[in-house]
Design a protein around this nucleic acid. Structure first.
Lengths: 198, 198, 198, 198
DNA sequence: GATGAATGAGACTTCATTCAT
DNA sequence: AATGAATGAAGTCTCATTCAT
């Protein structure tokens, strides 16, 4: 209420996180000096340390910041009224679409979960400790098996065939090798389904 | 005693590469001082620079060094007398087995192809610039399509479903989340096949 | 409730000085950020700069603030009716007692007079520029010499044997090496007297 | 033997320690940037870290470096053939003389033993954990008491009256207040003796 | 008057690289 | 050819101080 509209004063924290996302995703954690992040964010170096105790803390905070809209998006696009097959194809397609259109976020997360920072969060993310988006994903397989439309496989195969493929596809496209269009998305999603269907 | 002739010649260079593999795979490129590599290799720091102009050069050389036995292994284990299905399942299984038992190599390559170092080599690797193992992999799909046992899909889907899954599986297992045993390998290889079979 | 009138007026300045004493004596000047002092004082950092132009100014002001009650205490406890011997022993005993029970003040002063801040004030303090407690101390020696109960020595020997011993004793006790009890105080005071008596 | 005489190549370690002594004693630990020490030593900043893992390590090493010749000097000048009285007066006089002519060393040690670095070494130094110079000092009191020439006092009083006085005297002189000449030394040493003699 | 967010100089430390031996 | 001591640029982080509110 104090400021007319809340456009600008979104505060430094967001500016810093945004700049960090830019620079981390482009250069990797170790080639991203705090000073460069500060400059891009338009703040002094010291200011970063008012909001994040550490470079590490900044990285972890950015992970959460990036995950929230990703998971929200996946949840919103879920329509539990559809068949398991349709839900699964939608899930994979949406994930590809979201990550394709958020390359900074994808590159950051890939880096994060492959580094000492997030390496031991990978499992937690996939098995879904508490009510997060992954639970939704897990439920799909459980329900699919019950209905007999998904083959019973060692559990890890499900995320492997799904997230592994999606991750590789985006990585591949970001490296410039391919263009991700609707046809490719549809074909990939269907291939994922074929991999696990009954 | 094991090798009679070629014991000394490649000494230093190999020792350095091996030490680098150890340390890079464990700590990442940026947390791996040249001095630590030198110490582990049992050579002086300066000696590294006689064989590699740069830390970057060392990293790139190590990539090649790591790829050679990997590709040779894949090629050796190929039996063109088998059916496409069998060849494919063998390929995936062998790849998983090889990478599982070579975690240093896997970690290094993951890091390499996800970093500015190798990011734009990903495509080249997959389409197979010259007569390397990937060509063998590519031929599998071409032949499979001709024989009608592999569905015709946008080409990228093949490596995506294969390498993506394998990569994710190994990553997942190395992070401690799962154990890769024969059952899991077989199930994954079969799922990959189902993803693309006609 | 305890004091009726002068509760508010000196509020901030005193709060700041008190907090500074706490933190300086515990951590040293350089490990005592203004922000920590402000927080402990319950004021904003900026407020410190309304009362003290500088961190240096704060330190110097604190020195004065600490010296006032110290000197007042020494003066109050002086009974000029006693013999020189008795006065001297009282002086030393009281000084030890005061400093022992004011460790923050002692630690601060030690630090101050041993640092670039107060290094050249030591002399002024001891020869007594103006009518302060040291004058009282000096008078003791002058009178003692006149009465023939104190040996005539190069003047510096008097403060050296007195303040040097006291300072070392407190330092020693604060470092945890010894416990200062009445017996030790009495023995020390008497030893100081023996050092200079006729 | 390899180099003609061993004049220059006394190596960087010594140069660094010497520069550090200069700067620490003049400015205090916290106002002595490693860069300034390096410059004065005529070496690169990084070189300091080849010899000392830390600024802390440098400080501790310097303490030892400074203590060795100090203790050796005190030991050398000891003549156990003299009377306790004479030995004591010699000890105090020599200590004053040594420290007076080594102001950098004195300032450094004062600072060291009054800081978190050496605060808890004070006691150990004084009670003499193992066969160091202080043992020699302690033995003086034990022997003196046995012979009946030194009064029996709470033990801490001995170092307090001795080291306290000496320390204060040097501090006082270094602050510019007084000049330490033979007369002052003799008077101080005698006063110390009077403080504790039977 | 009081506040505390913002700043940036400067401290400590690491490490790729060089070069005299 | 091999070494490793020496270097200094560059990175992370702290904290005295300012100034808009």
């Amino acid at each position: 209420m104090s400021s007319s509209s809340q456009t600008k004063p979104k505060d430094l924290r967001s500016a810093i996180l945004d700049a960090a996302l830019d620079i981390f995703s482009e250069n990797g954690f170790h080639s991203s000096p705090m000073s460069r992040i500060a400059k891009l964010a338009g703040v002094g170096v010291g200011s970063i340390y008012r909001y994040f105790s550490d470079k590490d803390a900044l990285i972890h905070a950015l992970c959460e910041q990036v995950n929230v809209p990703l998971k929200r998006n996946m949840q919103e696009k879920t329509d539990t009224g559809l068949s398991i097959h349709q839900q699964f194809v939608c899930f994979v397609s949406n994930l590809i679409r979201y990550l394709s259109s958020h390359p900074r976020e994808f590159r950051f997360l890939e880096q994060y979960y492959n580094s000492p920072y997030g390496i031991d969060k990978v499992h937690t993310e996939l098995v879904g400790a508490n009510g997060n988006a992954t639970d939704m994903f897990t439920r799909l397989f459980v329900d699919g098996q019950k209905q007999g439309v998904i083959r019973t496989l060692p559990f890890p195969v499900y995320p492997v065939m799904t997230f592994g493929s999606v991750s590789f596809l985006i990585r591949y496209s970001l490296s410039g090798g391919i263009m991700v269009d609707d046809a490719l998305i549809a074909a990939t999603a269907e291939a994922c389904w074929n991999a696990i269907k009954a």
